[in-house]
Every structure is written in structure tokens, then in C-alpha cells.
Computed example of a mutant assay.
Amino acid sequence: MSPRPVLERGPADLFGRRGRDRAVLVLDAVASARLKWTTIVNRREIGPPERDRGLARVVTGRRIEARDQDVVSLRLEAPDRRELPRWRPGAHLDLELPSGRLRQYSLCGDPAERRSYRVAVRRIPSGGGSVEVHDALEVGTPIVVRGPRNAFPFAVPGHGSPSTRVHFVAGGIGITPILPMARLALRLGLDWSMVYTGRSRDTLAFLDEIAGFGDRVIVRTDDEHGLPDAAALLPGVDSATAVYCCGPAPMTTAVADALRHRRIELHSERFAPPPIIDGQPFQIEFASSGEIFDVARDRSALDVILERRPDRPYSCRQGFCRTCTVRVLAGEPDHRETVLTAAEHAAGDMLVCVSRAEGGRLVLDL
């Protein structure tokens, strides 16, 4: 995967304020209940909390997955070849790269394969993490990982999802979390379909594996068909369909907008921080220096912190990896994430990439 994107539950934005549309509120309640159910299942199947510790792995395989050579997949194993923690489709790993960067990448292999994980990364010239993966992670390279974690769980129809069929929408490297979902849907005999889109066939990864799904999958490229609209991405989607979408922000936004008032179950990830909805300006104070900085209504606290402390750790920018956690010493946070527990909130923990302030100022342990 490329940078890990945003989970959307139902048609409303995850981190913004909910609107007053009653249909949207009902859909969100249903989706929230489903998410809690699948989270319990995911935690039970993943196993003990060792997934939260840094664990030694080694790169045992490396393969170019797209004709333009900009996508590489890596196979990761334990040094002693022991079985690895279980995972479910939609899960990701945190990779601690040799430079110290922490990046999230979706697992795109087979959950039944217990001795290795597979991730795939598109090289983005301006993205230091992806360049490092391509240039530094050769076969034999040791690497520390955390996980798996699942911020994009797949709920099987009839077992956590009220829908009876599934439609997948994958844009470019967004195929990575979708691929294991599609394999599971095929294995279970579900009614499902997929649209896989990108700039050209040369840029699309895993086309050989996608071909094995037959006519369930429509491969649509910009150079052959033009930019797709929502109708092209959602053929045959009706109220009985659950939609799983992963890809660039314009694509996921188009899908969300098209489904917003159609009472259709939507789950998606995207490759950019979510837009800040209903953001109010506030201030942050660094406790160590007493410096006070303004956070504009359309910026995150993390943005402002990185301008002054560029060495501060961060990764997903979307409120699920915990890397940017900061302790609040004074003030009332407006928590806009779903991963911290009530006890962590009470202790003052805050994810500065998405959360904001209820009042005018937060004093941070920085």
C-alpha cells in the first residue's frame, strides 16, 4: 500500500461533526455497531497484544508487481520461521524503516499463510517512506514491524453486515487491502464484484492475480476509458450491496458523495488525511517552553507541531496508528479518533493528527 488512508463508516466523515440528516444518523449507527462487532472479532483472531510491540522480521522475498516497475511487493518472515500473528482482510502492518520512519502498509497476501506476510508499496518520488522501501529493503534486510492492526475490517454479509452482496472499488495501489477481501469473498462463495481503476495497465499491480477472478472484475484505466465517474465505479450497486472502497481521495470522495443518500453501506480508506469538518481555531502551548501557537480551523495540531518540532514522530495522519500521541496537561481535547480507550482519554492522551480542542487552548507535554 502507499500511505495508509482513512476509514469511513457510512456516508459521514469519520472525524467531522455529524450532520442532522436522520438517514445518515441511522446509517452511521448501523455501521458503528458493525464496526464494534468486527473489531471484537479482529482482536480475538489476531491474538495477544504482541502485535503492539516491535517484532523482528526479515525480508525474504521481493517482486516487481506492475509493468512500470513502480510497485514492489515484499515478503516478510520471522527470523526463525515461526508462525506469525493471525490477521483478517483489511489489516495493515507498521514498518519501522532503517531511517527510523514509521509507515503503514496493507497486508495483501493470504491470511491462511501463517509464516509470511506480504505488503506492496508504490514508489512516490516525493514520499520518503516509499522511496526507502524501494531502495533499501532488499532480500535479507532485517526490519522491525508492529501489527497486524485492522482499521478497515471486512464484514462478511450475514456475519456482521446487513447487506447480501459486496462491491469493491480499488484505485491504483488501493488494491492492496481489497485483494484479500476479494479472495475471501470468492472462497466463501459470496455474490461480489469489483472495479479496479488506474492511470494505465502499466501502473496497475497484481493484474495476474486479478485475472483469476474472471468477469467479476472490471479493469478500467484512464488512458483507455477516460476518468471514471461514480456511475462507472458503482455498476449494479443497490441497497443490498456493501461497498468497500480504497484509493485516491478524489475517487473515494466521488463514491461517498454518490452513496451519501442512497442508504448503502460504505466502508473506505483513502491515501490522504481526511478533510477537517467543522474545525474551530484553537491554541496549543508547549509546556517545556511556554510557547503558544495558533491552529487554524483548517489545520491540524500536528501540522503546527511539525513546523516547530520536525523530528516529532508521526505516520498515518488519520487517527489510527497512535504514533503522534501526545499527553495533554491542561485543556479539554475534542477527540476525533476511534482507537484510544476511555482510560487513555482520561489519562490525557490525544492524537494530534485529527483531534482538536473543545476550548481555546491545550497545554501539551512538548
Rank of each mutant, 00 (worst) to 15 (best):
H335V: 12
T325P: 00
S315D: 05
R317N: 07
G319E: 10
E307G: 09
R322Q: 15
L306S: 05
E332R: 12
D334I: 07
C316L: 00
S315W: 01
R336G: 09
C316K: 01
R322Y: 11
H335T: 09
R309T: 06
A342T: 06
C324G: 07
R309V: 08
T341Y: 00
D311K: 09
A342G: 03
R327V: 04
D311V: 00
C321D: 07
R317M: 12
E337G: 12
R312V: 10
A346G: 09
D311Y: 00
C321E: 06
F320D: 13
S315L: 05
R317D: 02
P333L: 06
Q318F: 00
P333S: 12
R309E: 11
P333W: 03
R312G: 01
H345I: 08
R309A: 05
Q318W: 00
S315H: 02
R312K: 13
H345S: 07
P333R: 13
G331P: 09
V328P: 08
Q318S: 15
V326E: 11
V328A: 04
Y314N: 12
V326R: 08
P333D: 14
Q318G: 15
C321H: 01
R336K: 08
L306K: 11
G331E: 10
R308C: 08
L340C: 12
P333F: 05
E337R: 06
Y314G: 09
A342S: 14
D311L: 05
R309L: 12
C324S: 08
R336Q: 01
L329R: 14
G319L: 04
R322P: 01
R336H: 09
R336N: 13
V339F: 02
R322A: 14
V339H: 04
G331F: 05
G319M: 06
V328E: 02
E337D: 15
P333K: 11
E344I: 04
P310G: 13
R312D: 13
Y314H: 14
E332S: 14
E337A: 03
